[in-house]
Structure formats: C-alpha cells, structure tokens
C-alpha cells in the first residue's frame, strides 16, 4: 500500500510517501495511523493530534472509521485550506 503525506504532515515527516505492507489487523484509517505511529516515532509525533488528520482512500475523502482493506493508496493530510 502506498501512503501519501501532504502539507505540514509531509514536512514533519520529511518525506511525501511510504510504501508499506500492512498486517491483517489494520482494517480502518484509524488502525493504519496507529500502525504507522507504532512503527515510527516520527509519525507518532507528526500526527500527535490525530483528530486533525484527514484521509483519502483511493482518491476519495473518508472518515477515520473507513476501511483501508485492499486500498492501493491512502493519503493523510492536515485540514484543507484552499480557495
């Protein structure tokens, strides 16, 4: 699975993506963030305020309880500030 990062999350992590194999226990966006935080202290710090992080699964905006099963791409990012 490819995980993309944007804006200050990308800057704090100092990379714009990860290619990872996720265990079967990771079912939702929230599980994925727990998994990323457990394997990488940098992510735990960067995404300290988990409630702020928005997500998209295969280019669709979703909530943290959405499934990531079989997803090709999950994007994680701060609140959007366009327009």
């Amino acid at each position: 699975m490819k995980v993309l990062y944007f804006a200050w999350l990308r800057e704090r992590l100092d990379r714009d993506s990860d290619e990872i194999d996720i265990p079967a226990s990771v079912e939702t966006v929230a599980d994925l963030m727990d998994f990323l935080a457990a394997r990488d202290e940098g992510f735990a710090l960067a995404a300290e305020n988990r409630a702020l992080i928005r997500a998209a699964v295969d280019e669709e905006l979703v909530d943290h309880d959405a499934s990531v099963r079989g997803a090709r791409t999950v994007a994680l990012f701060p609140p959007m500030t366009g327009g």
């Binding site: 959007m80 366009g82 327009g83």
Partner: peptide
Amino acid sequence: TLKTDAPFWKK
C-alpha cells in the same frame, strides 16, 4: 465546500 473539502494547502 471547496474551502474544507478540496485538497489544497496554503503556506
């Protein structure tokens, strides 16, 4: 809706 739901970030 674009302000909150379109993936752009200003710096």
